[in-house]
Every structure is written in structure tokens, then in C-alpha cells.
Nucleic acid binder design. Sequence first.
DNA 1: ACGAACTAG
DNA 2: TTTTCTAGTTCGT
Length: 437
Amino acid sequence: MRHPSAADTSRRKPSRIALVDANSFYVSCERVFDPSLAGVPTVVLSNNDGCVVARSNEAKALGIPMGEPWFKLAARAKEWGLVQRSSNYELYGDLSARFMELLGRHTNALEVYSVDEAFLGLNGEPEELVTEGQQIRRTVLRNTGLPVCVGIAPTKTLAKFANRIAKQNPAMNGVCNLDTMPPAHVDHIMSRVPVTGIWGIAGRLGKRLNSMGIFTIADLKASDPVVMRKKFSVLMQRTILELNGIPCIEIELEREDKKQMIFSRSFSTPVTTIAEMHQVLSIYAQSAAARLAKGEQLAKVMNVFAGTSHFHQSASSFPSVTVKLPAPTADPVILTKAAVGALDGVLMEGVPYARAGVILTDLSPAGYQPQFDEFVSVHEHRNIGDLLGKVKGKYGTASIGLGRAGMLAPPDWTMSRKHSSPRYTTEWAELPVVKAS
DNA sequence: ACGAACTAG
DNA sequence: TTTTCTAGTTCGT
């Protein structure tokens, strides 16, 4: 089932880079299993159904901005025919993995850049690569139901730009290879797109560039990379060189180990008691520990934070404490104890906390400990049981549980998702049902 | 060295 | 009444 071009990329460094990006990824995932959403203005909401994190093209056309809180849209949703879905990250993660697996069949140089996009190293003549881009689109659409666009160019920065062109011009059928476009035409487009439209340039850098008379991508491309390196940084120099077709940013095949791990959530309803905050932090620390273990990493430093809503000035409070752990660890009991202890005496009874989180830093690989494995686990199990009892005694039986064992019923601050689609692909009980008539 | 701000998706 | 999450980098002190 390998595509012929896969053989090409194994020999030498690929000469071209494709950026494959799913269109309105979360909305498209929802549409895969609910075709009635096709053509309907649809948004996907953040945790707690707070604000818009993904918009269909129809929703964008209604002028709905990214990040808009749902409560501002709810009143007009009916007249617009606007439909909302809660975010269903299990579904999106599963479709993402299938999507990436399909892309891997087209290249030996795949960089999974985010949940909905990837860079592929490719070789071939310009028109062949357009054909390959179309094949990628067809394969992904047929096997996952996801619509994607493909941008092809000599550098990552230009591939991103090409993808943008493909997305914005339906006539291109979702594929844009910069090499097949007349250079004057590319320059013309670049002279009309603000410099913040390029990868890595946002508000702050944009303002500084504007003040130097650099307003468009074309302006930046024409600037002197050496001078700009001195005024900004080597990253700016690389961006300029990449805009000129000189590759500076390599495809990263191996995911490097994470340097920090954050587990943070907003509450559906404020948490006002210290006892409940202890319960929150216990659960968050265990989630963090589980993730750490999954990545086979240990943490040396923990930061624990809580915060009130930014939208209520009264009684605003953002406590944050960093503690050094006695030794690098992924042990859920040690991490739970540390998380609860860190904010001990810092949290205030009666303050309406809106969110909390645990940040683990100074991460290191877990490594092996083969020789005394049995002794270590026996010892650790004893320790866990011991501490588990202590924590439960102090904070109640629901305050801690390995797995979900300790939770009798979800507390009322847990995330609310009122409009979630089923976990079609990851729960047997929620498999989609197809009827033939 | 550290926390705040910025960037990206 | 209602406003994401994660991971990285850069900047200011």
C-alpha cells in the first residue's frame, strides 16, 4: 500500500515540504459522525462550554470570532441556525491518529506538528507533487472523512504560506504548490498579506516590524536577514531566509521529550472551600502523575496554582507556589501530597476560585531499574497504601483514588459538557449505528 | 534565575 | 451569571 514516492524520500533529503492541515479540524470531526452538520454554521466550544475554539466556514462567515464566549452567541444562535458542540477530545485525538497514520504512508519524513497538521518531506516535479497532494486529500477524506488542504514549497515557512493560499482559494481544490505559480503572482499575494500572516509573527513582533516600515510578507521577505538578526533574533533571520526559499528549519522526525507537563482546568462552578480545593488538587496531581508515567518521565519541580475569575475584580487572587520534590518522581502519592501541601496556608476560605493547575518541570527520562524491580515495586506498593490511607483520612475518601477508584460521584465543579457528541471511536457503548433503508 | 508576557494551534 | 488548554520561547528584572 506504500505510495511510490515513499521510496524517493528514503535516499536523500527531501527537496520539498508539504504542510497538510485539516480544515476546521474539530468541526470536521463532528461532521464525520453527524452528516446533518454539513453546510450548517457550527462551532465547537471549549471545556465547560465556555467559548468558541473551532468554527466552520459558515460560522466564520457569520462573523463569529475565535474565542467568542458562547453566552454572547446563544441569543442569536436560533435565528442564525448556528449549532454548537462541546469539545470531544477523545474523538479528535483518535481521528488525528488515523489521519497521521495515513500521511505516514506518503513519506518517510513526517513531522506531526499538532493535532491537525503535519509536515511531510516530498520529492518530485512540481506537477507530480500537486498530483500527490490531491492523492493525500482523497486518501484522508475517504479513510477518515476529514477535509484537508495541502501547501507545498521548498521551506516550512513557505509551505505554511502555500497552505493558507490553498485554504483561501477554493478554485485550487485544496492544493497549492508554490513552485507551480508564477513568481510575480506569489510576490503579488505576499505584498497584500499583513506580516502577521506568516508563521511565527504575531502581534508584538508585528508592531515592531510595522514601526520599521515592514507591513507585508513581501516587505519582510525583502529585508536584510543579517540586519534583522541583529535587531530581533536568529529566529527572525531564519524566517526571512525561509521566505526566500532557503531552508533553515528542519523537519523534526522524533518528538523530543517534553520539558514541562501542565494539568490545568477551569471549574464549572467556583470552588470556595479549602477542603474542596484539596480534593481538586489531589485529582489534578494524580492526572499529572498518570501523564508523566505514560511519557516515562520523572519530575523534580512542581508548581501549583489557583486563580479566581479575571472577570470579577473583587477578591481576585492568583496564588502560585513552586516546590522542589525530594527526588525525581512520577509517584502519584508523592505528587498528590506535594500538590496539596504546596498551597497549604496560601488558599483562603471563601474565595471563589475559578481554576487550578499543576505544572511539573525539570523532567527527566524514567530509565530502567531492572535489577531490584520486584523489591522496588513491593516497597512502593506498601508506601502507596500507607500514604493513601493518610490522605484519605485527612481529606475524605473521595480526595484521592488511583484510577477512578476513589471517586464515588463527580463533584459539582467538574467540567461540564452539555452538548457533547458520543465517543464514537473509543467507547464500545458509543459506537455509531448505521441503518440501511 | 525567575516570573510575566507572548506565540501557536 | 456566563470567558480553553498545553507547550514552548522571549523578555524584563
